[in-house]
């Protein structure tokens, strides 16, 4: 097994229930390399958020381990920045103070001026400034709040960025704009990102790889889909990429049909994943073009 920057090894989370216990997910093993953007897709209740919480160190897995940079993850750390679905800004602080909150926690010895300068750099990066940064979250639109939240997460310069459905509560237009901004920032900073989403198009636009989860309980990561589309990407041109629709069809087919068919517990001896193997890698873009042209695909 090759060593990845982030290594998730046979993770499982079970909760005590009335009869025995409830297994939310099990046999989850995968790796993320440095600078890669990985999305995870699955229906509600499959344990995506639980995996995210384990990675963030906010929850402890029942079985399995998480290693980052060769060290086991135990408890929350500033090495992992989290953007929560509901922004989680502190409402009594201004947008700027919410960012400096993170920066001060990261570099407690910095001077006030240094903290301010650093915070403004990241607020500018997400397009917030000109007075909006001095307002409280309640006075900002949903899109602006999520920008602040993203700025706070990037400002602590984490080794791994965890995004829990960050655009779920936004309207489609705002979502599109912030997705593109996030894409630009990630390309520029070579940030390693793990993101939960429900949105297939969002996943294809942003991710290098998409993990597909079967329905819970006993959810598993069934496949790892390679998004074989070159960077830089943008929303308007990505849909013309020959790989786009094969990938999209594969994802939709999985969500609509196969996630249900594959759900349920699997006997360990019939499932290679139970032994800690990584999910099967599929490349719908390459499979689709293999038939007609022999176009070369750069490895993502």
């Amino acid at each position: 097994m090759t060593k990845h920057f982030l290594e998730i090894d046979n993770l499982a989370r079970r909760f005590p229930a009335k009869q025995g216990e409830l297994t939310v997910f099990e046999h989850a093993s995968f790796g993320i390399d440095k600078g890669k953007f990985v999305c995870i897709i699955g229906h509600s209740g499959c344990g995506k958020s639980t995996i995210m919480n384990v990675l963030a160190g906010l929850d402890t897995p029942t079985e399995g381990h998480v290693f980052m940079d060769g060290r086991e993850v135990s408890g929350p750390s500033l090495d992992r920045g989290v953007v929560f679905q509901n922004y989680s800004l502190l409402p009594w602080l201004t947008a700027l103070q919410n960012v400096t909150f993170g920066v001060q926690a990261r570099w407690p010895n910095w001077s006030k001026e240094q903290v301010r300068e650093h915070s403004y750099k990241y607020l500018d990066m997400v397009g917030l400034g000109g007075g909006a940064e001095l307002r409280k979250p309640a006075q900002l639109s949903g899109g602006m709040r999520q920008r602040v939240s993203i700025a706070r997460a990037f400002a602590i310069e984490p080794k791994l960025l965890l995004l829990d459905e960050p655009f779920g509560a936004l309207d489609a237009l705002t979502r599109g704009t912030i997705q593109e901004e996030l894409l630009k920032i990630c390309d520029a900073t070579n940030q390693t990102v793990f993101m939960i989403t429900h949105d297939v198009d969002e996943a294809i636009l942003l991710a290098d790889r998409i993990l597909l989860m079967t329905n819970g309980p006993h959810a598993r990561i069934a496949e790892s889909v390679k998004v074989d589309i070159d960077h830089p990407r943008d929303r308007s041109s990505i849909i013309h990429d020959p790989g786009y629709y094969p990938i999209r069809n594969h994802l939709v087919d999985f969500l609509v049909r196969r996630s249900k068919e594959l759900s349920g517990a699997v006997a360990p001896e019939t499932d290679a994943q139970a032994a800690g193997a990584h999910p099967k890698i599929v490349n719908p873009a390459a499979d689709a073009t293999a038939g007609n042209t022999s176009a070369e695909h750069s490895a993502a």
Partner: peptide, 11 residues
């Protein structure tokens, strides 16, 4: 969520 913000910032 706010407590989690504090935790992820190692306060």
């Amino acid at each position: 969520d706010w407590v989690n913000v504090a935790r992820t910032h190692e306060l």
